[in-house]
């Protein structure tokens, strides 16, 4: 196993950040840790990168124990913290050079690994890191985390605050990186990114809700899910919230995602109810649950 976590717990005083977390990440896997802010993702990353000590439980990274072999782990992993943590007053090239040097390597030696990413920021190599755009900062940070050819790569919310186009590019890069055999553990609050991972763990309030392949995770959704739309979306949402048969209702893009308490329903009954509430142009269609729906359901 590239990463194996067993029964890890961690609390800050009264606040429990992680409680009894266990999972494994296989070599070469792209594993996603999906959860909202404050779920405990960063704490788990810090424990795995030897920055924090867990209160209970054990964890191994690249076959080293996080507590006793922390020096070996620090040599063999790449870590990209959630906050942009490079030297803002150093240029792109100087940052990369610095990280190559402290890991005892050179840019040339591992250029193949980062080439894909670095060529995109190379035109700006004499620009100070602090003056880069959000997407370019992430690319530089990833290059710096990769420059020593790590066995395991930890990316803590790499796409937070990055525009949609750069996010898409970033995930394409991760997919390509994965082909070189690097194990990647990535966390994100964006559910749409979860589908791009090999396996994901849904995490909330320091607890793992579910671990599975993204396409399998949605099978854990227990109900039939409907897309409903109408002319007045706000009124639609309020009406459904007050409906006696409603099991769950969430706004979802241009629709409302709706589940019913009854197992089998005639959508016409719901439509009639909604029209009674003064709504027009009511459309109801069955749809496939997404990871977000599953998460919301599991997190209930």
């Amino acid at each position: 196993m590239s990463i194996s976590i067993s029964n890890i717990s961690k609390s800050y005083g009264e606040v429990t950040a992680l409680s009894n977390i266990s999972f494994d990440v296989k070599p070469g896997e792209l594993f996603g840790l999906i959860g909202p802010d404050g779920a405990g993702k960063t704490t788990l990353f810090r424990i795995l990168t030897t920055l924090l000590i867990a209160d209970e439980g054990q964890a191994m990274v690249a076959d080293y124990d996080v507590l006793n072999d922390y020096r070996s782990i620090r040599k063999s992993v790449g870590y990209m913290p959630g906050r942009f943590s490079l030297y803002q007053d150093l240029t792109v090239e100087e940052n990369l050079n610095f990280f190559a040097t402290i890991f005892g390597t050179t840019i040339e030696e591992n250029y193949d690994l980062i080439k894909d990413i670095y060529v995109q920021i190379e035109p700006f190599k004499n620009r100070r890191a602090g003056k880069l755009s959000g997407g370019m900062k992430q690319k530089l940070a990833l290059s710096c985390a990769l420059i020593h050819k790590p066995k395991v790569l930890f990316l803590d919310e790499p796409t937070t605050g990055v525009d949609p186009v750069s996010r898409k590019e970033f995930w394409e890069m991760l997919k390509r990186l994965q082909k070189t055999g690097i194990t990647i553990l990535v966390s994100t609050p964006y559910m749409d990114e979860a589908a791009l991972c090999d396996r994901i763990a849904l995490i909330q309030d320091g607890k793992i809700l579910e671990i599975d392949k993204p396409e399998a995770i949605v099978k854990h959704f227990p109900k039939s899910l409907y897309n409903i739309s109408a002319d007045d979306m706000y009124n639609l949402f309020v009406s459904l919230t007050n409906y006696e048969h409603t099991y769950s209702v969430f706004p979802f893009g241009e629709f409302v995602h709706y589940t019913d308490k009854r197992d089998l329903i005639d959508t016409a009954i719901v439509a009639t109810y909604l029209e009674e509430q003064g709504l027009t142009d009511v459309q109801i269609a069955k749809t496939q649950p997404t990871i977000e729906d599953t998460f919301m359901e599991l997190a209930k």
Binding site: T49, T50, L51, R71, R74, K75, V77, Y79, P81, R83, F84, S85, L86, Y87, Q88, F99, I102, F103, G104, C144
Partner: peptide, 13 residues
């Protein structure tokens, strides 16, 4: 403060 210590710690230095 700038978070770079976090990266320096996770390095062979």
């Amino acid at each position: 403060e700038q978070g770079t210590m976090e990266i320096l710690l996770v390095s062979p230095l």
